[in-house]
Design a protein around this nucleic acid. Structure first.
Lengths: 222, 222
DNA sequence: GTCTATAAACAGATAGAC
DNA sequence: GTCTATCTGTTTATAGAC
């Protein structure tokens, strides 16, 4: 949209950024329809008219939030993607799978403001809107594809086969569920937050599952 | 609330039931705030005033929807709970775990109108409201507890330990994720629905994961 | 660019006829 | 019990002053 440069943000860009961050949080927590533009403007310390001015309306801001997520994740993930491209042995690949799991736990499950991203994405999944298209092609698809590729390197099973794609979904799901069912987890575990300590526990269990699944492929089957 | 008997529904009970089913669907799909009472009344072919009359207002209907889910699941699950109570050998327990997984796939993932239940529950999880309390104590907690118990029978690991509880969450998550990320699954798999054929596939992958995890406990570790 | 005032649509709740 | 009409508040979007 605007200039790519963000060296020193103009006051207008500051307003835009504040509105996006506020929208991200409120849309994620209360849904698109559950959030009023007045709330967003208040949280961003901007006036109500500014959202129509900068984004053309509530929906425009919603899309801008999705784009912000895609760009942020891209800028984080790109370096890692390059590293992952290098083909390696099965053991290295297995290790990279584990690391990916742990990163997903860190990103999706632990609470800080990155949690707003996760919440927003999950809500888009449950109420598909035009914003989901951008999230899917920008984040979901490439991530899933990459994991499928690493899986092939680790097990020899074809990356784009139906079972591999499903397998990767199960691996992601076992971890992401702790964000989704967060409230139920709190009550059942007696936790009041999911901080680093809890994340470590979750990651170790998920990692153990993954090891078991990989192990049965090496020694056991066929 | 009303008479427990439901032998032949009075016209009033029919209206109540229609409102609950409409509320269940719309609250699940569009959220509490995203759903207007006018929509609900229209879908239920009732008039707007009836929801205030029968439930005291929009929130009352929301709670009634949660209660309906709890009662329905109870009536289905109670017979199975009795069966599960009977202690058996590790192999039987492992088999029962697999069956539970498959039942969860059938319930949560496959599309028919039971899907409204799943959608409603998931939405409650992401936007906790008083209705979540009833769902948690009525459905979530007992189910998770039961699975933990079976896990102990299968592996000898204590049911109420921290890792066992987390382990069961990962097992549930890997399956439930197919409902949550349904839209992404569709696109990535090239599916247009999750019917019996797709559910079988998912269940077999999840079941395979479970087998691997159990196997590494029998032969491998410590 | 920012902010205020206002318009037009829509929300949930209610009163009262039937 | 059902249904209609209406009240009161809130929503998004916009027009125009600064």
């Amino acid at each position: 949209m605007s200039q790519a440069a963000e060296k020193f943000p103009s006051p207008a860009e500051q307003t835009r950024a504040a509105l996006v961050r506020a929208g991200l949080r409120l849309f994620g927590r209360k849904g698109f329809e559950g959030t009023s533009t007045r709330e967003i403007a208040a949280l961003a310390k901007a006036n109500i008219g500014s959202i129509a001015y900068h984004f053309g309306g509530k929906e425009g801001l919603h899309l801008a939030c999705a784009d912000f997520i895609v760009e942020t994740i891209r800028s984080i993930a790109n370096p890692e993607l390059a590293q992952a491209a290098a083909a390696t042995g099965p053991n290295d690949a297995a290790e990279r799978l584990k690391q990916s799991m742990e990163r997903i736990v860190g990103f999706f499950v632990v609470s800080p403001d990155v949690g707003d991203f996760a919440q927003f994405v999950l809500r888009e999944l449950s109420v598909p809107s035009p914003a989901l298209d951008r999230l899917y092609t920008g984040v979901f698809e490439p991530t899933h594809r990459q994991l499928c590729t690493i899986w092939e390197q680790a097990t020899g099973e074809p990356a784009e086969s139906e079972v591999t794609k499903i397998r990767i979904f199960t691996l992601i799901g076992q971890v992401v569920y702790f964000r989704i069912a967060r409230e139920a987890v709190f009550r059942r575990m007696g936790w009041t937050e999911i901080g680093p300590a809890q994340a470590t526990l979750i990651a170790s269990v998920a990692s153990g599952n993954l090891s078991s699944i990989l192990a049965s492929r090496k020694g056991g089957k066929s």
